[in-house]
Amino acid sequence: MPELPEVETIARGLSPLVQDRRIADLEVLAPGSVHGDPQAFAQRLAGRSICSVGRRGKLLLFELSAGQVLAGHLKMTGKFLFFPPGTAELTSHARCIFHLDDASTLVFEDQRRFGYLRCMHSSGLSAWPFYARLGPEPLQMTEMEFVACLGSRRAAIKALLLDQTCIAGIGNIYADESLHLAGIHPQTQAERIPRTRLGFLHRCLRDVLTRAVHAGGSSFRDYVDGLGRPGSYQDTFMVYGRSGQPCRQCSTELARIRVAGRTTVVCPCCQPRDG
């Protein structure tokens, strides 16, 4: 699933391409990919101009004219692809096609059909339960806020990092990578981690996320940016997806465990269970 760095990369890449463009027409090819009535969805968007493209957690947000907002959750395999005039290449995974006023095209694709699009007025965004429950942005949290958010919780630290109501935008990849960099075992209860250690985790998390954004995200299955380009952060993974391989830091064989129902890779030496 695209996480904060991937969605941020998509938003930054699409913004200069579609900003101030008007949605001349759109086709909803898969009604299940939009929330609400597909015809009403299309009518609400047609004629709107795209004012900006941003992100909140793992949500891609298009701010439109007349106070409308188009939210897109990519889930497992969703993607937005931009095509200059006359270059659109549609696949069987195309779910919604936005025809822009300069003859360029923006296509929402989703192979596994878990992603969705939702249009609403900006005044109702905070009333949308999913949006309202999102926790703070990790790159905007201070160290003190991060420690206060996690320090008194009994849950496993990785479970809290994955909890979108606790902190928004972090998924399996960047939780594993940040915890390894901080030398913290994923199953450690947050309340048992010294505050100075949580502060160090905050710095590690920010470092990992920032470097991943600069690398254009991580591509190892379906993710590409708005122009179809893969990211490169996967080339520097320390632990994620590397179970059974030697730790890049100490050469110990990396172990695979489960935390909060998610496959997790950990170094038994660099991240001791009771360390």
Rank of each mutant, 00 (worst) to 15 (best):
C119N: 07
P136K: 13
V147Q: 03
E145C: 05
Q140I: 00
Q140Y: 02
A155N: 12
Y131C: 04
G124C: 01
S126T: 08
R113E: 02
E137Q: 11
A148W: 06
R154Q: 14
F146C: 10
A155M: 06
H121T: 03
R133S: 15
A159M: 10
L162R: 11
T165I: 01
E137S: 11
T142G: 15
A132Y: 03
P129Y: 05
L150C: 07
R133E: 14
P129D: 03
T165W: 01
G115C: 02
G115Q: 03
L150R: 05
G135I: 03
R154V: 00
Y116I: 00
E143W: 11
L139G: 06
C149F: 00
C119Y: 01
P138C: 10
S126A: 14
G135P: 01
L162M: 13
G115T: 02
A155E: 14
P136V: 11
M120N: 02
L117I: 01
A159L: 09
Q111S: 13
D163K: 03
A148Y: 06
T142A: 08
R112S: 05
S152E: 14
A132S: 13
K158E: 05
R154P: 13
Y131F: 15
E137A: 08
T165F: 02
G135D: 06
V147M: 05
L161H: 10
A155D: 13
L139W: 07
G124Y: 01
A156C: 09
E143A: 15
L125T: 00
V107P: 13
E145M: 09
C119E: 12
Y116M: 02
V147S: 05
S152L: 05
L134F: 01
G151L: 06
E143V: 15
P138Y: 10
F114S: 00
E143F: 12
E143C: 15
G151F: 08
V107L: 11
F130V: 12
L160I: 05
G124H: 11
T165C: 13
